[in-house]
Simulated assay, not measured.
Amino acid sequence: MQTLLLRQMQKGQTGTIRAIKIGGELGRRIREMGLIPGAQITIHGRAPLNDPVAIRVMNGTLTLRNSEADYIQVEVQ
Rank of each mutant, 00 (worst) to 15 (best):
K11S: 12
T16A: 13
E25L: 07
S67P: 05
Q40I: 13
I72M: 00
Y71T: 00
I72Q: 05
G24T: 05
I55H: 02
A47K: 09
D70P: 05
M9D: 01
P48N: 08
R18E: 15
I43L: 01
R46G: 04
L64Q: 05
G24I: 01
E75M: 10
M9S: 00
K21S: 13
D51T: 06
I72C: 02
R46E: 08
L64I: 09
M1I: 13
I22V: 13
M33N: 05
T14K: 15
R31P: 00
Q10C: 04
M33Q: 08
A19P: 01
I41A: 11
Q10R: 14
L26A: 10
D51E: 03
L64K: 05
P52T: 03
L35W: 00
I36V: 13
N59K: 10
A54M: 10
Q2H: 09
N50D: 11
E25T: 01
E32T: 11
A69W: 03
I36C: 07
V53I: 15
E68W: 09
N59C: 08
V57P: 00
I55V: 06
A19N: 11
G24L: 03
E75V: 03
E75A: 12
L5T: 11
Q73Y: 15
T42Q: 14
G34A: 06
Q13F: 10
R29V: 05
A47P: 03
R28Y: 10
Q13S: 12
N66E: 07
T42R: 14
R7E: 12
Q40Y: 09
V57H: 08
Q73N: 14
A19S: 13
N66K: 02
I20E: 08
Q77N: 12
I36P: 00
A19R: 14
I41E: 05
V57T: 09
S67N: 10
M9I: 07
T42H: 09
N50V: 04
D70C: 11
T42D: 10
K11M: 15
E75C: 08
V76R: 07
Q77L: 10
G34E: 02
G34M: 02
R31C: 08
G24A: 07
I30Y: 06
G23I: 12
A69Q: 05
Q8I: 09
L35Y: 03
R46Y: 04
M1F: 14
I30A: 06
G24S: 05
I55N: 00
